[in-house]
């Protein structure tokens, strides 16, 4: 009986073990192995030592893609947290049509990123895009949203915010609802303003949510692919070349499998490091 149960335990987790071995453990190891090789899939693999790693250090495009990611995050994260938190605070109150508003903000979250990018590619159009036509009606100059190297990445960051903000509104709402009502009541009696309440009661409680939003946005920023792939192809002047798009190009366009694997490995390390640092910083800040 006991033995039987042990066997069934292992049986229950066996698909997971098999899956993790084939699709996670082996690939991680293989990735490391590949990074010391040069391989275009059709020719035999060739051991090249640390060449791939040396190449990364001189690779201006990889550096550029990381810099682009920073630009993206610098715009995306504050925008995301600001808008999501603001709307969540509003939706947390008793207002009319709450379900409608929540539903509207959440809509872009469910549709595919492809739809969003195709849509915004048109909205961002230079000559005929809705946004520029609107700007011109107001008497402003046209902006090359996706064709001006200064604007292209910010444009993508704005679009990504539009796409994801609904999700973060929901997460903040969950956080806000966990603030005990009695705290507000007590502080009201002591004459605290609403702003003070927000600052001293609400913020500390939703701090973990804030951290999560930050980490999820960061990971999202490092995973940016479909947006530049569809909208700009990484241009203009590589201003929207994302790290994943660059890995994709190296791997599936030039078939530099060894080099692409090296880039993937290093990118993964960078992401882990960034997330780790973010955590340290935020956790230290907490009282």
């Amino acid at each position: 009986m006991r033995r039987n149960k042990t066997i069934s335990s292992y049986l229950l987790v066996s698909p997971y073990l098999l899956h993790i071995f084939v699709f996670v453990l082996f690939p991680v190891g293989f990735s490391l192995y590949l990074s010391f090789h040069q391989w275009n899939i059709i020719s035999p693999m060739e051991y090249v030592g640390l060449t791939n790693y040396e190449k990364v250090l001189q690779d201006q495009y990889f550096l550029k893609s990381l810099r682009n990611t920073l630009v993206f995050l610098a715009i995306h994260i504050p925008l995301q947290i600001g808008i999501a938190l603001g709307l969540a605070v509003i939706l947390n109150q008793k207002i009319w049509f709450r379900a409608f508003f929540r539903g509207a903000f959440f809509m872009p979250v469910v549709v595919s990123g492809v739809v969003v990018t195709i849509l915004w590619q048109q909205l961002y159009g230079y000559e005929m895009g809705s946004i520029n036509l609107f700007l011109m009606k107001l008497g402003f100059e046209k902006i090359g949203w996706l064709t001006d190297p200064q604007w292209a990445m910010p444009s993508i960051a704005i679009m990504a915010t539009w796409k994801n903000v609904g999700l973060y509104i929901i997460l903040f709402l969950v956080g806000l609802q966990s603030v005990p009502k009695s705290l507000y009541e007590a502080s009201s009696l002591e004459g605290a303003t609403r702003w003070q309440q927000f600052w001293h009661i609400t913020l500390p409680v939703i701090n973990p949510t804030m951290m999560m939003v930050m980490i999820l946005s960061t990971i999202g920023g490092f995973s940016l692919f479909i947006e530049p792939y569809v909208m700009t192809g990484g241009g203009p002047l590589n201003s929207t070349l994302s790290a994943v798009l660059y890995i994709y190009k190296q791997g599936f366009f030039y078939y530099h499998m060894g080099y692409a694997a090296t880039l993937g490995l290093l990118l993964a390390l960078i992401i882990l490091l960034v997330v780790f640092i973010q955590r340290m910083v935020i956790e230290n800040k907490q009282p």
């Binding site: 230079y126 005929m128 064709t147």
Partner: peptide
């Protein structure tokens, strides 16, 4: 022109 004449 630097801007492509797309959609026309």
């Amino acid at each position: 022109p630097r801007e492509q004449q797309k959609g026309q």
